[in-house]
Simulated scan of single mutants.
Amino acid sequence: MTADPSVWRVKGMPLAPATGHGALDGVRLAVKDLFAVTGFAVGGGNPAWLAEALPAAEDAPALARLRTAGAIVQGIAHTDELAYSLSGHNTHYGAPPNPAAPGLVTGGSSSGPASAVATGHADVGLGTDTSGSVRVPASCCGLFGFRPTLGAVPTGGVLPLAPSFDTVGWITRDAATLAAVGDVLLPPGPRELPARLLCVGGTAEQAGRFGLPVTEITLSTWDDPDPLVLAFRRVQAAEAWRLHGAWIEAHPRALAADVESRFRFGSRVGAEEEAEARARIAAWRAELLELLGGDAWLVLPAGGPGHARDLGLAGRDEWRRSVLRCSVPASAYGLPSVSVPTGASPPAGIALVAPPGRDRALLALLAATMAMGGPGGR
Rank of each mutant, 00 (worst) to 15 (best):
M1H: 15
T2F: 11
A3Q: 06
R9V: 15
V10W: 09
K11F: 10
M13D: 14
P17N: 10
G20N: 02
R28K: 15
L29C: 11
A30Y: 07
A36C: 14
A36E: 14
L50K: 07
L50P: 02
L54C: 10
P55K: 03
A57T: 11
A60D: 08
A60V: 07
L66H: 03
T68I: 03
A69C: 10
A69W: 01
G70C: 10
I76W: 02
S85K: 01
H89R: 14
H89V: 15
N90G: 03
P96E: 02
P96L: 13
A101G: 10
G107E: 03
S110M: 12
A114I: 11
T119D: 00
H121A: 15
A122Y: 09
V124Y: 01
L126V: 15
T130K: 01
T130D: 01
S133W: 07
S133A: 12
R135P: 04
R135F: 05
G142V: 03
F144N: 02
V153C: 06
T155R: 12
A162V: 09
P163L: 05
D166G: 06
V168M: 05
T172D: 02
R173Y: 04
T177W: 02
L178R: 02
V181I: 13
G182C: 08
P188K: 09
P194W: 05
R196G: 12
C199Y: 01
T215F: 07
T221C: 13
W222N: 07
W222D: 07
P225H: 12
L228P: 05
L228V: 10
A231E: 12
Q236F: 09
A237M: 06
A238V: 05
A240C: 08
W247V: 04
I248K: 00
P252Q: 03
A254G: 11
A254Y: 05
A257L: 14
D258M: 01
R262V: 03
R264I: 07
V269G: 01
A271R: 14
A277E: 01
A282Y: 13
E287Y: 11
L291E: 09
L292Y: 08
L292A: 04
D295Q: 12
V299H: 03
G303H: 05
G304C: 03
G312D: 15
R316M: 13
D317M: 14
S322M: 15
V323F: 08
V328T: 10
V338D: 05
G343K: 03
A351E: 15
P355F: 04
L363S: 01
A364I: 04
A368T: 13
T369W: 04
T369C: 10
G373N: 07
G374A: 11
G374V: 08
G376Q: 06
